[in-house]
Design a protein around this nucleic acid. Structure first.
Lengths: 228, 228
DNA sequence: GGGGGATCTTGACGATGTCAAGTTTCGGAC
DNA sequence: GTCCGAAACTTGACATCGTCAAGATCCCCC
């Protein structure tokens, strides 16, 4: 009977509390490592368990199924996405809501391009528990940050309140689409080969300047799209 | 020894030439049927073969691997996407390039929402042969239609030639992002519950009117984003 | 009309997600 | 202090998957 400390010495790592330690966290981190090394289809319950130093069926005691594990990982990803957006927002004062909206877009695309596999997984609804409360909450939090900044723009007079939702959806669509197409290698190479931040900044600024022009221009177009 | 006609009678269907008929096409159609019925993860080589009425290893003689089958199906999807865009374009005369750009966006989103699973598969690069010539060609054709209409807008004076690529990328991003978020159920329900065509039309019109305003306005913003 | 090659089948292999049953280990009750 | 229940983990098994190798079948062309 070999002591458990010898069996799991390399896998327990920093958290050596008991049995394995905090296996739940270890599995999530192993998922991230596998995801970045071998891509989404390389993420296997058995491979993740292998990396965590446990048997192939151990994950079942922390996640009812593979989908639950991926969902928990995706929820963490949405939290990190929110942090990326928050970090970008912190650099722009509340006095300039248009540039804050631009910062949201840059933070979104920057996170996506910096973490392509996790970002891709976050929107793989076929592999996730779609109505998981944690996932929904994390996703809604990120979207809520965008809506809050759009609301700031409304308050500052750069947009009408009735078109706020349309602007939010459009803004989210353009940054999400740009991220997906970029990660998927669908954009022309002469574009994506440029500096990461520059393209994200250019598209975000382009959107903000065109969609939220100076207040007078806003009034001109607003009434068209705000009918009940 | 049962005659082959009895074995495959129900599967051969309309094309009863020999062995099976045109198995390659039958497999592609079985893929589409499985995809829409059971979702992306329900698409299995064995299930597809089952539906086509052949043994589990038969597809290997027409597609070297599952990824090749899915890639061929995705290429067909891009062709259909192009057809959807072309159909939308045909309803708008060349004299109004701005509304033609709007039509491209509507055709794009309409196809995506009408065929969510095929559309999702078309951008699942982890499951596809990324640099397959057929897939690339079909994808580039669809993107080329968008670029062509943007070029029309440039010719008509609604945009500067130097910002054409930026506009094309932004337009593709917004319609693609809207499609992905919509299909993924990430948009607020109070939005997606509305009529399909209306949201697609609203966002597309919103984009066109804001990004391609009357010529004078274009000149105002153009110089910012066109630096080398 | 017969042979060559394309087409399809059968059988097998390793890998995967999940389940059932057994084993080890922790924490609290006595 | 020790003992028991529950939690954590292991072992083994099953159906299914993608892929490969080998054999069977059928069409086209010489």
């Amino acid at each position: 009977m070999r002591p458990v400390s010898e069996l799991n010495a390399d896998a327990v790592g920093e958290s050596g509390r008991y049995h394995h330690g905090d296996l739940r966290t270890a599995l999530l981190e192993a998922t991230g490592a596998t995801l970045c090394e071998r891509g989404i289809e390389g993420v296997t319950l058995r491979e993740v368990a292998r990396r965590a130093g446990v048997s192939h069926a151990a994950p079942a005691h922390h996640f009812p199924s593979k989908a639950h594990l991926l969902t928990a990982f995706a929820a963490r990803g949405f939290a990190q996405l929110g942090a990326s957006i928050a970090a970008a927002l912190q650099r722009v004062p509340p006095s300039d809501p248009r540039r804050r909206l631009q910062a949201v877009g840059e933070g979104y695309v920057r996170f996506a391009v910096a973490n392509p596999e996790p970002f891709g997984l976050m929107f793989r609804m076929d592999a996730l528990i779609e109505d998981d409360p944690g996932l929904r909450a994390a996703s809604d939090t990120a979207y809520g940050m965008l809506r809050a900044v759009v609301a700031e723009c409304v308050t500052a007079g750069f947009a009408r309140r009735s078109e706020a939702e349309l602007i939010a959806v459009s803004a989210w669509s353009i940054v999400h689409g740009l991220s997906v197409l970029w990660i998927g290698g669908r954009l022309p190479h002469r574009i994506t080969e440029r500096d990461h931040r520059r393209l994200a900044r250019t598209v975000s600024a382009f959107f903000v300047d065109r969609v939220l022009p100076e207040p007078p221009a806003t009034e001109r177009f607003a009434r068209k799209y705000t009918g009940g």
